[in-house]
């Protein structure tokens, strides 16, 4: 299964998070919201200007900017 950065995922594509490669405040925020390795993630859609992206995770919807999504790697499945 290919592993891609979250930014490159298409709408309605799903996968499992394999790595969150960022520390500090952003890393903490991302993990607080449930974006941790092993979690299933689905792209719900993107904002009118293609950024930020909305994702479904643990039954809830989150949004994050593409620049923040760059730190997250997903194994497409």
């Amino acid at each position: 299964m290919p592993t891609v950065p979250l930014r490159q995922m298409q709408k309605d594509q799903s996968g499992t998070i394999t790595a969150v490669k960022v520390g500090g405040e952003l890393g903490r925020r991302i993990r607080d919201m449930g974006i941790v390795p092993g979690t299933r993630i689905t792209i719900m859609g993107r904002a009118p200007l293609f950024d930020p992206v909305a994702i479904r995770i643990m039954g809830g919807t989150l949004t994050l900017r593409n620049s923040e999504a760059d730190h997250i790697e997903v194994e497409i499945a």
Partner: peptide, 10 residues
Amino acid sequence: STPFVMELPP
């Protein structure tokens, strides 16, 4: 910028 990560609540 402060991280944008936020919830879109139902």
